[in-house]
Simulated assay, not measured.
Amino acid sequence: MSRVKVATAETKKQGPFDLWLLGAALLLAGLGLVMVFSSSGVMAERLNGNRYYFFQRQALFALVSLTLMALCAWMPRKVLHGPVYLWLFAIVGLLVLTLVPPFSVKAGGARRWMHFGPATLQPMELAKVVLVMYLAYFFSQKQKLVRSFSVGFIPPVVVTGFLGLILLLQPDFGGAVFLGMLFFLMSLVGGTRMTYLAVSMMFGVGAMGLLIASSPYRFKRWFAFLDPFKDPQNVGYQLVQSFYAFGSGGITGAGFGAGKQKLFYLPEAHNDFIMAVLGEELGFIGISIVFICIGILLWRAFRVALAQDDLRDRFTAYGMALVLGLGFLLNLAVVLGCVPPKGVAMPFLSYGGSNLLSCFLCVGILLNLSRSART
C-alpha cells in the first residue's frame, strides 16, 4: 500500500504545468514591456540620451525573472521548501543593510534599494515571498498548537513585526502595511483565533494612525485622495493627473504612444502609475484586457492552492496568490483614487526589476505546485 501511495505522489508531481496561469502572466509581462517603452521613452531620452534605456533594462529584468521562474517551476519540492529559516535570516540581513549608507542608496528620502554593480535590488519585494514561505511552514507544522497564544500566535507576529519595523525605519510605510496584510490573511486561513487577529488588527490600525498623525506631510498625503482637486498642484497632483489620463482614454484610447500625460505631467508614469498611461493610450478595451488577464491568473492561482493535498503546499500556493492579488488590488486602488497614494508597483506591468523578479518567483512556485494539483 505504501508503494502505491508513493508512486501516486510521484506521478502527481510530474503532472502538467498550469498553462492558463503561465499564459496570463506572460501576456501581462509582455504588455508591461510595451507600456514601459511607451511611457518612459521621452523621459529616458532626456535623462539618459537613449529613449530605449528603461525598456532595455526592463527586458533584461524580464529575461532574468523568466529564468528564475523556470528554475522554481522545475525545482524538486524538497529544495523548494528547503531551509526556510535560512531564507528568513538572509532577507532580514538584506533589509538591515538597506539602513547602512555604504550598502544602500537613498532616493526620495528613503533607503530601500541596494546596488550590486549595475543592478539595483529592493529587498522588500523578496521579503513578501520569504514571509509567505515562513508562514506556510509555520501554519502547516503547528496546526495542533496554532490556536494557542504563546506557540501559535506570538512567533509569526514577532517575525512579521520585525520585518515591518525594519521597513518603517527605511522608511517604507506601504511595504510594512503590505506585510501586515499578508500576515492577517494567511493567519485567517491558518487557524489563528479570531480574537487574536481582531486585537492585532486594532493594534495595527492604531499604530498606523499614530504614524500618520506624527508626520504633517504624511497626514496631508494620506488624506489627499479624499479630495485631490482641493490641492491639485501639491499633494493631489499625481492623483489628479492620473484621473486626467484615465478620463481622456475613452473606449479605444488615444493610441499606442499618443498619450500626453506621460510627457512630464504624470510623475512615475512608467512605475506606479503605468496603468493610467495604459488607460489613456489603450482605453477601456486595454484596461479590460488587463483585468481579464488578472482574473485568469488569480483564478488559476487560487485553484492551484485549493487542489493541493499537502497542507504546506496549499498554504504556500495561497500565499503566492495573495502576493500577486494584493499587488494588483493596491496599485489599482491607488491610481483610481480609492485609497491614499502610496508607492505600490503594478505586478508584471510597472518598471522595476525587484518587483518583476518577485512576481515571476511567485508564478514559478505556483507552476511547480500546479504539477501536483488534484485534477
Rank of each mutant, 00 (worst) to 15 (best):
V64C: 08
Q170Y: 13
G109I: 14
G180Q: 01
C72L: 13
A136E: 01
W113T: 03
Y351D: 05
S350F: 13
M202D: 02
I212F: 00
F256H: 09
G174P: 08
F302R: 04
A70I: 08
M275G: 08
R312V: 15
V84H: 09
V339A: 04
W113S: 09
G257A: 05
G175A: 15
A321Y: 01
N355V: 12
L86E: 02
V240I: 07
H81D: 05
T160H: 05
F243Q: 03
F173A: 13
T8P: 00
T195C: 04
V96L: 08
F315M: 00
K262D: 13
R300V: 05
C72G: 02
Q233G: 03
A24S: 12
G352H: 04
I287L: 15
V240T: 06
A176V: 05
M181L: 06
E45G: 05
L135E: 03
W113L: 11
G352Y: 08
V205T: 01
R147L: 10
W87P: 00
V199N: 13
F284I: 15
P232A: 14
L367E: 06
G352S: 03
L165E: 08
P118Q: 15
R221G: 14
M194N: 04
T11S: 14
K12A: 11
F17I: 12
G250H: 11
L282P: 03
P156D: 07
V304E: 00
F246Y: 14
L188N: 00
M346T: 09
G152E: 04
G283L: 12
S40M: 07
G247Q: 10
P102G: 06
V334H: 07
A224Y: 11
A9P: 00
L145T: 00
F162S: 05
P341T: 15
S104C: 06
L71R: 05
D227V: 14
F229P: 10
A254C: 06
G295W: 07
A321R: 01
R147T: 08
V92T: 04
I251G: 00
A24L: 13
L131P: 02
F138H: 01
R193C: 06
E268A: 14
V146N: 01
Y217F: 15
G352E: 05
L121F: 14
F246M: 05
F116I: 15
D231C: 12
I285T: 07
T11F: 15
E45L: 03
L349F: 07
S40E: 06
Y85R: 05
Q14S: 10
A213C: 02
